[in-house]
Design a protein around this nucleic acid. Structure first.
Length: 388
DNA sequence: TTTCATT
């Protein structure tokens, strides 16, 4: 099934649809804020259910780092700085690395965050695992020690009985080693298994043994044998897609009326020269023109769109701002303003978002939102330094 | 029929 956030992002991209899906954003958010981030994926941390009891290697051994985290399922456009900003809101970070394709430089959708204090690492797992950012639900877990032996341990499994559950799939494969992730692909409409799945083992040798033991074998009770092989590497697909894009006719990349595109392009260039604005524009294009005559653009701070959030509770923290605004689009930074002495929130904070469209939807949706017993006021930050 | 991109 299509998630709420996928619908929302589709709405954001399709400007003709306006803001009528905002209530769905709120509905999705209500669930998240009331339940807190939840994500019960098979973990590579100590909580995995898939350990082989007879395995000589205990999970969560003493040499495992208690400060280094792996973060998976990050939005494609999220930068290392944004990753640092998000996880830095929990505690002091020793180092932070977004993994990128060596050739294209594109994010591979995961990264590592190493905290100074193990308690902050634990807190990050508890508060940020399962956080929704744009169309993604991020996964936060302890990183395994870096090693060549854990690479290329991902298996593609096909021909599975349609009735087989993820748990049964794990049971079948767990005899060969420690499972890091498992998934069964389902039909988007019916939700029925497509008979295809993935198993990521802790180590490549375990994956090799599973291929030897299970490829072309019938699972218990099955009528047909399954196929087990190493999965394709997704980064290869990205490179191929990028290469094929180079050969596409340029005008195929820009749907819609040509005149409209050209006009927007000119406006973008003007704004880019004046303010370093890079993103796609729609309603603000008009304001952008007037701003060239010296009129302030509300909320625009050079690196993104700054949003003012008022009426936060004294115990509000950065994570609540990430949870509220993250689903609407690219958030580069959040800040809760605190009293210097008490360290309590002074009732307001700021959120920076990269794209105007996404910021506008977030504001339209969250202004007037009831958080606990308070009604929030959300707007573009205004420049009040020049008041008479 | 290759995922919600695990060094």
């Amino acid at each position: 099934t299509v998630s709420f956030m996928q619908k929302i992002n589709a709405a954001i991209l399709n400007k003709r649809k306006g803001f009528h899906l905002c209530h769905q954003v709120i509905a999705a958010m209500e669930t998240q804020l009331s339940n807190g981030p939840t994500c019960n994926n098979t973990s590579n941390g100590p909580s995995t259910i898939s350990n082989n009891c007879s395995s000589p290697v205990e999970s969560g051994s003493i040499e495992d780092s208690k400060t280094n985290l792996i973060v998976n399922y990050l939005p494609q456009n999220m930068t290392q700085e944004e990753l640092k900003s998000l996880f830095g809101s929990i505690g002091e970070i020793e180092s932070c690395k977004l993994v990128r394709d060596k050739i294209t430089g594109q994010s591979l959708g995961y990264g590592f965050v190493n905290y100074v204090d193990p308690k902050d690492a634990e807190k990050a797992i508890n508060t940020l695992n399962g956080l929704r950012l744009q169309t993604k639900t991020i996964k936060v877990s302890y990183a395994r020690p870096s090693s060549a032996s854990i690479r290329d341990a991902n298996l593609y499994v096909s021909g599975l009985p349609k009735t087989m559950t993820q748990k049964e799939l794990e049971q079948l494969f767990s005899q060969y080693g420690r499972i890091i992730t498992s998934r069964i692909l389902v039909d988007q409409v019916t939700g029925v298994s497509r008979g295809v799945g993935f198993i990521r083992f802790d180590r490549r040798v375990e994956a090799e043994e599973a291929i030897k033991g299970l490829n072309c074998q019938k699972p218990p009770g099955a009528t047909e044998p399954i196929t087990v092989k190493f999965a394709n590497n997704p980064s290869q697909k990205t490179s191929q897609a990028l290469l094929s894009q180079l050969y596409q006719s340029p005008n195929r990349r820009y749907p819609g009326p040509l005149a409209q595109q050209a006009q927007r392009f000119r406006l973008d260039n003007l704004l880019n020269m004046a303010y370093g604005v890079k993103s796609r524009f729609s309603p603000m294009a008009i304001d952008g023109v007037t701003s060239l005559a010296g009129i302030n653009i509300p909320g625009h701070a050079g690196t993104g769109w700054c949003i003012f959030v008022y009426n936060l509770a004294p115990d509000a923290d950065e994570s609540i701002l990430w949870q509220m605004f993250g689903p609407f689009g690219a958030v580069t930074n959040v800040k809760v303003i605190r009293d210097f002495n008490t360290n309590k929130c002074k009732g307001f904070g700021f959120v920076t978002m990269t794209n105007y469209d996404e910021a506008a939807v977030a504001i339209a949706s969250l202004n007037g939102y009831r958080l606990g017993d308070r009604v929030l006021q959300v707007s573009f930050k205004t420049n009040k330094t020049h008041k008479a």
